[in-house]
Amino acid sequence: MRGDLTWLDASIKSIRDVTPSVREFRIMPAGGPPGWTPGSHIQVNVVIDGRTDTRFYSLVGDYDPVCYRIAVKREQPSRGGSRYMWSLSPDARIKVTTPLNLFELEFGRPDYLLVAGGIGITPIYSMALTLARQNAPFRMLYAARSREEAAFLPELSAELENRLTFFAENEAERIDLATEIGRLRPGAQVYVCGPMGLLDALRHVWAATGHRPLDLRYETFANSGRYAPEPFWVRIAGRNVEVTVPENKSMLDSLTEAGIEVMFDCRRGECGLCSVDIVEIKGEIDHRDVFFSDHQKKMNNKMCACVSRVVGGGVTADVGYQSS
């Protein structure tokens, strides 16, 4: 349960570059890492422009009684989290949380398909190891920009052998989602982690082939959209206020710092509490949440301030404040 989340002092045990743009950290929390199950993540305290923020990182590989393992992709442009993580040296002291699992693997299904896109490999990695150890029927599809950019590919290939298929974008290899889903036995589940485009495509094929939405399991930390983040403005309806949201800060944080109160909870585009009404748009809203349905996103009259952004201008928003 989420209330049990506690912050732990930790030190970095070792750092290793698993690809040119993915760095693996072994982190030793004080008192040793609590147990965790595949799909779990931790939060890490990061410092961005002198202020602290938190980032979610999935735990990688098998449980290790000594340390957590996470992998961080250097994002360019970065909202600041990965830049901070990449600045850390071995022996650095940081703060991390106890693990939480919101992407829990369900056991006993007749078939499984694991799909990882890019750095989305992180939660899928431990799921694959667990299913392999149980001799569960599963296959794994892993797509990345190139073979060199695919984190943990050698380890996974050795462990999974022909249950793993890898797709290198630079060699024009693409996952044929419809065929892959068509091969699944009835009652199968799909677990996917990767960019929003991959998730959206999979969701559409899954629905179009008559599968139950609940059997498509995913986790996004809402850190990817259709566009790269860029600065945009937000005007508050009925008030003479304009706030600029820089590329490395969320709309929610920018509004809050400007004294515009918005309710929020999850900060990862799931709960919908930070939804604001959009009165006018210049440019396009890059919806990065999973709270609104496709149809609601197309209407473009609301957005989740915690993760969603605007490209090519800004929006006039109504945050529901009444002065009287």
């Binding site: 919101l102 992407f103 369900e106 399991r217 799931e270 999973v290 709270f291 349905s293």
Partner: peptide, 26 residues
């Protein structure tokens, strides 16, 4: 919730929070 513990309905919204579940015991 279904018998696997996955949430199948949330009031007043068109989607279901992807992490919403209770634990199912074997």
């Amino acid at each position: 919730y279904n018998s696997h513990g996955r949430c199948t309905f949330m009031p007043s919204q068109e989607t279901i929070n992807p992490g919403a579940a209770v634990r199912a015991f074997p």
